[in-house]
Nucleic acid binder design. Sequence first.
DNA 1: ATGATTTGACCATA
DNA 2: TATGGTCAAATCAT
Length: 309
Amino acid sequence: MEGSSSSDRYTERCALATELAQVLDAVRQLEAHMGVKGGSDDGGERCRALVSSMRSSIDRSIHIAMSSCCAPESPPSAEGSPRSGGSDQAADSRCRGANAAGQCKKRKALPKWSTQVRVNSVQDVGPLDDGFSWRKYGQKDILGAKYPRAYFRCTYRHTQSCHASKQVQRADGDPLLFDVVYHGNHTCAQRSSQRPRHAASGEHSQPQTADGQERSSIVSPGLKAEGLENPFSFQCKPADAGSAASSDFPAGYAITASPFVSPAMSECQVVGNVLDVELTSTTDSQMADMDFMLQLADPDYFLDNSRYF
DNA sequence: ATGATTTGACCATA
DNA sequence: TATGGTCAAATCAT
């Protein structure tokens, strides 16, 4: 769509920042109000903690929205062209040659958005369980960041040419907060096969150890019992821990439900969502995701799903 | 045996 | 040139 020019997007993003600023202001007022009422009860304590996390997330969201105002736009390209199908062994030719397709190690043309997920305890790390199966393909220390960034791509990248990927990084200032950045859309069968009601029905799809020991992970089933040594070894506890042990899915796959507001995140909180959508092409698939992302941006949708928190 | 993760190295971009 | 993103061999888990 030629319709969405750079300046349009700039305006939209700034509008987003403005909206977020208003929400932030409201949260501050709420926080102040709660401070007046004082409550030493647990509920008040919890509310204050929630408000605090909301505020910090909104701060981040504003920052991200504003910084993306200046993000350079990239021209539409043959989106999703598998620049190297399979386990591209000829690694070196792959990339240089693949540039012809307009895509190599960067995927600027793909839709991109981020969300922030808070967990309740440092052990309780399940933000990566977003309803899709991911395979980790890398991890890197980021300059100036306390925690490394992990890189994931869809498990079905090769079998179904699904080019969705995501990056997960623990927030510097808050070890309970994870920044998750998604790139691209799922074109694999997961999209249609997994739905939020999995949780509503008490169905649990996480690989989980019966004894609850800290070992398995949502996205890293093969990880050792490293606990926090590896910030990307996630284990998200379901609300209904009883029915979980067996899964309909093969071991080693992270299965849950809805993307982003996963029922399995019953003990996690999605504390912020930031859209940074590159409107470079409008395939049906992308349009579908746009709808979805717009839902995320919708306060009603967000509040509706807050019951999972 | 198969598939996932770790990790050092390579490469593109800013 | 520094940094971030990806690859792929080695290793580990199931």
